[in-house]
Design a protein around this nucleic acid. Structure first.
Lengths: 333, 333
DNA sequence: CTGAAAGCGCTTACAG
DNA sequence: CTGAAAGCGCTTACAG
């Protein structure tokens, strides 16, 4: 069984090869009847369009490379779903690489994507990514955008991290807390720096000292750290993200303390599990799916208008008050 | 700035075009010195290998399409990481599509992958996938394999679901439970059927009646359902998976009951959060990452040996006893 | 290891 | 809308 090519479809439909080629791409230069004629012939023969051949000739792959720093993190998984959704709508397909925070693997996959070739790359830079990577991307003229974590310049979509932890800290201050610590973060990436910064500035503004309890983004590690906190420790925790906050609540429960009543906890991200948590988690909402979609749009703009200035879309976060901050226990008034 | 082609590299290195082509793929027919010579020339010119042109000629894309039923589910996210890891080692790259359990979207993405073209597809069939899909794949001669959820035939890698829920049920029976219910599942897919079946058979063998508490795989929905369970309800829950089990423990906590002490809970999957949970979750371990790697291997075998019989790799699950089943509270002996 | 050549299946520009 | 043709950048088989 020979492979069916456009030439065969053209013969079956009784039209010229160039007409068949145009008809198969639904070109409006052709009469609707002709297009139907060709489509029917293609269906009869079981014709399958070969995108790789089209790419070879036209140089457009309608494919983008997505570098995820850690796909097993629910936040990034949700973001990936948003990216994939928005790109699919635009007729693009995504090639996935999970770097697992490895700078070496990130580099290797980027070169692989370049060879593929893809029309552009969307990157959540691995922790510790050297700034030279951005320069390489620019030199390669490979359209690119970052999501969540960013370089100093270049197209980007991400949350306003400083505003987020500022909102969380100010909420806790308004509830009367004075010993407020920042739990988690500390990695060498823009998100860690910015979230810490928003908290620290809000504390300084209130004339209070900052306290950092660094730990990796790991429920177990956060839980162990919080479980061991002394009774005269912080009365409130601004957490790097929801996973760390989940760990914090588990650590409090394990040491016989009730999150919200004994120690206030606020997360960041509002991942799906946050509302169903015990106690329901007060957190900063940034909508990973929406951010993935925004990032896809920003990248597509780079691909279609490579000469324009790169757009940076900073999304405003929102404080979602539930129970883990203890607010419902202290009605204002 | 013109694009650098193999021809240019050959000229720069002072060798024939065919020699340069072989050298760039590190063919052992060539002397190491020649290979070095060519590689150095390529580096000097900033040559980028064009895989799409190679695909066009050789017909091998070294790309596979991955259809994930729900990437935001941590279990499938981890599985995706395993697939991507194993394929990368074999020099393959993955094109991702998240079907979000939509049969229509699954169909559309499959046709897209076929056009791409990919060397094969790895599928976690969306709930409600018609058996006709398998026939299409066979007719298209598109190498394929399923993961976790399966068709009646075809290459596959997945857990022994019946053995898993049987292990869980027998453990609860041994702890003295009699009113044991199955929480979650009920979707029209092989996993739901098999997990229920393993539980129901173990109950029947013990001469006990089965009880099904169906709910979607959603922490919030499971929590609400369990929170409302009466005091004379089941004393133990075999859960469809860990997410449902997490919901169950939250529902118990919300209604003032301690999971493990008041009602025993066993999950399925052993996702990362299970060990850190409060209380630590007793569950059935199937290693999503390992399963993803196994599925990748099974698919690669289909691609390299399309005429051989499809392999089905059924992985044995293991009971991981932690605290949510209450076993540590009742030392044997 | 050389050198010339065919071909993968499209896209695209062009004269009619 | 036709028809013939060039070309995208590789791979591959072949005679030397």
């Amino acid at each position: 069984m020979q492979r069916v090519r456009i030439k065969d479809v053209a013969r079956e439909a009784g039209v010229a090869l160039s007409t068949a080629a145009l008809a198969l791409r639904d070109d409006t230069k052709l009469r609707p009847e002709t297009r139907r004629l060709v489509r029917d012939a293609a269906a009869r023969l079981g014709y399958v369009y070969d995108r790789s051949a089209a790419l070879m000739r036209s140089g457009k792959s309608h494919t983008i490379g997505l570098l995820v720093c850690e796909i097993t993190n629910p936040f990034y998984a949700e973001l990936t779903a948003g990216v994939e959704e928005a790109l699919d709508e635009a007729g693009f397909v995504v090639m996935l690489a999970n770097t697992s925070e490895s700078v070496a693997r990130q580099r290797r996959m980027l070169e692989r994507f370049r060879e593929q070739p893809v029309d552009g790359v969307l990157i959540m830079p691995a922790t510790g990514t050297p700034p030279g990577l951005l320069e390489d991307l620019e030199r390669w003229r490979l359209p690119h955008a970052t999501v969540v974590r960013s370089f100093r310049r270049g197209a980007h979509a991400g949350p306003d991290n400083r505003a987020g932890t500022r909102l969380a800290t100010e909420h806790l201050l308004a509830l009367g807390h004075r010993r407020i610590a920042f739990l988690g973060g500390g990695a060498r990436n823009s998100v860690s720096r910015e979230r810490w910064d928003g908290y620290a500035r809000a504390m300084a503004k209130a004339g209070l000292a900052s306290e950092h309890l660094p730990c990796r983004t790991d429920i177990g590690e956060a839980a162990a750290l919080v479980q061991a906190l002394p009774a005269d420790g912080p009365t409130a925790l601004v957490c790097f993200n929801d996973s760390v906050a989940f760990g914090a609540t588990l650590g409090l429960l394990r040491s016989g303390r009730l999150p919200g009543r004994d120690v206030a906890v606020i997360g960041f991200d509002d991942i799906r599990e946050a509302a169903a948590w015990f106690p329901p988690l007060t957190t900063i909402r940034v909508s990973p799916r929406g951010m993935g979609q925004a990032a896809a749009r920003v990248l597509l703009e780079r691909i279609t208008q490579p000469e324009g200035p790169p757009r940076r879309e900073i999304l405003a976060p929102r404080l979602i008050v539930r129970e883990s901050c203890g607010a419902p226990l202290r009605p204002k008034g």
